[in-house]
Simulated assay, not measured.
Amino acid sequence: MIIEQLVGNKKLTKIEEQVIQFIQDYPRAVINLSLEQLSKQCFVSQASIIRLCKKLGTKGFADFKIQLASELSSFALDGKQISVDIPIPPNESCENIAKIFYNLSVKTLEHTFNTINFNEIEEAAKLLTEADTVYLYGRGESLILAEDFHYKLIRLGIHSSLETLNGFQEARSSYTNSKINEVALIISQYCNSNQFHYVVDELMSNNIPFILLTATQKTWPYDHFAKVTLRINCLESRHKMGSFTSRTAMLYLLDCIFGQMFSLNYEQNITNLARFSQRKIERDYYYRNTHSTDNSD
């Protein structure tokens, strides 16, 4: 496999290692570059790149890009290339389908962990922990992730606000209280919907800092506006049967942020969880008794 050879090939010259490093850092960009553009970006000759491509088992740069593009849209699982867009082959058994999704999740978590910027996780957790109010935004499948994070914050007693309807997400009072520390978290896979643009505009108009979690590599100028931008390396296309890898990666990063938040105020959060659990027990006891009384009438 091309990607495995990029990582594991030890018979490379210094110039070839320089090209390999650029390809590893910007694999999707390389697919769209010409041979001349790549040589200028890496400060090496075109002939050196062609020799490298042939050393990796391809016919030349064009063939290398075709194979790289193919592998970027799939994972190597049990020696087979599985598409992340449609990972299920036809007429597959239930056991093998379960194995495919298991392996897909494992590979996604492994890849995401290896590319985490821990400083960004810590900065995002600090911003959210110090906020008096946290605003959460998401749309479609991103909204489901936002709701999960919203519930986790509630369990810790953090004042979290999440509007589930698009129109309500885009509208916000123009009145702000300078004494209240507000922070927002926006989850958006592509950062290209009208709602996303409206939300960013509202936050910036009200001087509310925001954290951006996305699968898009090109988010300018929004990554410039965001206090923290967290990116996952999404291999999925628009023609996917479901957001399996992107969902797993985003949920993992959100759990990392939440875990860091919990750690920052550990003792207080242990107390908050105990109170939350006690309230649920008391409510359940009350409703059970009320239900029994109603049935006896």
Rank of each mutant, 00 (worst) to 15 (best):
D63W: 01
T58S: 10
K218C: 04
S277F: 11
C256K: 15
I154T: 05
I154F: 04
N269K: 05
Q195L: 07
K80E: 15
Y198W: 09
E170I: 14
Q195I: 00
D85V: 03
E236D: 01
A62I: 10
T229E: 10
I187F: 02
S263W: 09
T58N: 02
N194T: 11
M204P: 00
A125T: 03
L127D: 11
S74T: 15
I88V: 15
R51Q: 06
Q21I: 03
R238L: 14
F244N: 12
S188E: 00
V200H: 01
E282Q: 14
L77P: 04
S174V: 14
R139Y: 04
L136P: 08
L254A: 02
T112I: 06
P89K: 04
K126N: 12
A98I: 07
P87I: 03
D255E: 15
Q37C: 09
L143W: 03
T176D: 11
G79P: 13
H159V: 06
E4Q: 08
Y252S: 06
E110G: 06
T108Q: 02
F22I: 10
D63Y: 00
S142C: 11
L264V: 11
D223A: 04
E282T: 08
Y252I: 00
H239A: 10
D294M: 09
L52N: 02
T271M: 06
P89A: 08
T290Q: 14
T129W: 05
M261L: 14
Q5W: 05
G242D: 14
P89S: 07
E120V: 02
I187A: 09
Y175A: 10
N265E: 15
I186V: 15
Q189Y: 11
H239T: 10
F118C: 05
G157K: 01
K126F: 10
C53R: 00
E36G: 05
S174G: 13
E71N: 00
A62P: 03
T214N: 07
N9Y: 06
P221H: 04
C94G: 03
A274F: 11
P90S: 06
S48W: 02
A98V: 03
T219V: 10
L127R: 09
Y286L: 14
W220K: 06
Y287C: 04
Y102H: 14
A131Y: 13
E4G: 06
Q217K: 13
V84C: 02
I281K: 08
Q217L: 13
I208Y: 10
L230H: 07
Q195D: 11
Y175G: 01
N194V: 07
I144M: 05
W220E: 09
A146W: 00
F225K: 09
L162Q: 05
M250E: 14
T115C: 06
A184D: 01
D255T: 14
R288Y: 11
S34K: 03
R51L: 04
T13S: 15
L72N: 08
Y285K: 12
L52R: 00
M204L: 05
Q46V: 02
F64W: 03
V84M: 00
N269R: 04
N206M: 12
Q278Y: 10
H239P: 00
S39V: 09
I49L: 07
Q67L: 07
T108E: 04
T216Q: 15
Q217P: 08
Q67F: 06
